[in-house]
Simulated scan of single mutants.
Amino acid sequence: MIKWLEIDGQSSVAVARRFARTVATAAGFPEVRTEEAVIVVSELASNIVKYAGCGRMLVQWMPHARGYRLAIVASDKGPGIGDLALMMKDRQSSGGSAGIGLGAVKRLSDRFDIHSTPDGGTIVACEFLAPGLGLHPSIELAGLFLAHPDEDICGDRWQAWEMPHGLRLALVDGMGHGPQAAEAAGTIIDMLESHARLPPSEALGNVMRDYRNIRGGVASVADIDASRGEIGYANIGNIASMRLRPGEIKRFPTRNGFVGNRSAEPLAEAAAAGRGDYLIFHSDGLKAVGADMLLPLHGHNCLLMAAWLLENGEVLKDDVTIVIARVHGRRTHAENG
């Protein structure tokens, strides 16, 4: 699903349910796990219709170093949930319906989060892991994307690779949009993977030197070392990158240029990464995000934060991708750096 699915009645609930079943089955989910994902999608879509009247959903795959995961997001601008603790009990419903309830949605999901306010509506974010896939022990990771409104494919690509002490994360925005942009971004991601043993700046520099496609792209790459409490960062072009801590946002610099311009060199920088820190990448389809949007979200999981930014940020007429990682590793001295 490369665009929001509008939920405004039982027919759209059925569409969401069918789409979730198709995606989970195609990914090789066992029948029981597929039906559990379908149940969650059906419950969330039905809740939108019952309590908010209308809203929208995303159901899409997220890449990961250890495989793929199913992301399920439901968003509405309804009245919000007054007593969230009560509503998290199985089969509890503010409308007296016979639904399974948010408690069961949480129990069926491998990762779950919810954000609800009286004046801002509700966002629910759920993850389902592919068979045999475990969560990374020290770094949480999630990302969502939307295609340009006039296209059927997103020209951005993101990927993560497992490293000895953490993860490498990359986001590439192919120039323009549509199939050619997607092809360029995919080629750059593949080339970055071939240099995974090198530091981010060297890996990106080698890709810039060797890339031969007519259409280029912009990229940010980061290694998150949870054991040492460090981020190694490299960039070329307008991918926004930042570290979020309570009360603080550090914005990483960018360097003018693009992959495909062999006269340019990537920018390199290092920063501390303490327990609870977020690293956020987003392409330029999302207008610059201010502290007033990010800081209140601290503590929520990465998928919900990405969904909230897609729903509430200023999304331009372009491809947009948001990728967020959070450090769950042990506390290190670097948390003060």
Rank of each mutant, 00 (worst) to 15 (best):
K3I: 11
A16Y: 04
R17M: 07
F19C: 04
T22K: 15
G28F: 02
P30N: 09
E36G: 05
V38K: 04
E43T: 06
A45L: 07
A45M: 06
S46I: 07
G67L: 10
R69L: 08
L70P: 02
L70S: 03
G80M: 09
I81N: 00
M88F: 05
K89L: 10
I100E: 02
I100W: 01
G101M: 09
G103R: 05
S109W: 01
D110I: 03
D113M: 07
T117K: 12
I123R: 03
V124F: 00
A130M: 13
L133N: 08
G134H: 13
L135M: 13
D152S: 15
C154F: 09
R157D: 13
A160K: 11
A160I: 13
R168A: 13
L169F: 10
M191R: 05
A196F: 03
P200I: 06
G205V: 08
R209Y: 12
Y211P: 04
G216E: 01
S220C: 14
A222F: 14
A234Y: 05
S241D: 11
M242L: 15
R243V: 09
P246F: 00
G247S: 00
I249Q: 13
F252W: 03
F258W: 10
G260D: 11
N261F: 14
R262Y: 08
R262Q: 12
L267H: 12
R275H: 10
F281N: 03
A288P: 06
A288W: 01
H298Y: 11
N301H: 07
L304R: 04
I322N: 02
H328I: 10
E335Y: 13
